[in-house]
Amino acid sequence: MQVPVKPKLKIATTSLAGCFGCHMSFLDIDERLFDLIELAEFDRSPFTDIKHCGPCDIGLIEGGLCNAENVHVLREFRANCKTLVAVGACAINGGLPAQRNHLSIATVLTEIYHTQHGLVGGFIPNDPELPLPLNQVHPIHEVVKIDYFIPGCPPSGEAIWKVLTDLIAGREPDLSHGLMQFD
């Protein structure tokens, strides 16, 4: 009798209002990526270029919410991922993009597209395909339930690896001193 092959876990990843630094840090697990693809395959992710997320075991979200599209993507992930993980400072507290939060969106857009040096004749982009900015940048736990968090800007490859391997092994993720960094 043939032993049934254990299906691989499915992992999806995305970057919302982030800088892709957390994804770069994920790649810092280096050759352990080979171990990972023995156990898991990637669904929607910048690594695969799949555009929509199907049913997944683990979703990794980098970045906070700065526009309407970010909210849609986050909800798609929450609807499809059994376990959703906030990766990095921006997903957890808004991070650098949230430093605009005490300014009005009009002030920010005017400053960037009109006021600054060398912008004579500039205009605020208004293509209907562009997602509308939110008035403030929000951490993702303010909109959907998040199961686990990996702090850091970015979290180290070690920290991401530790949480992933804990989750895959069915352990409660635990970051010890040195892996838990807010900076």
Partner: peptide
């Protein structure tokens, strides 16, 4: 916060 294992700020931010 590290000592108390604070993984997130949990509440809504006031900004």
């Amino acid at each position: 916060a590290y000592e108390m294992n604070m993984m997130s700020s949990h509440f809504d931010h006031f900004f």
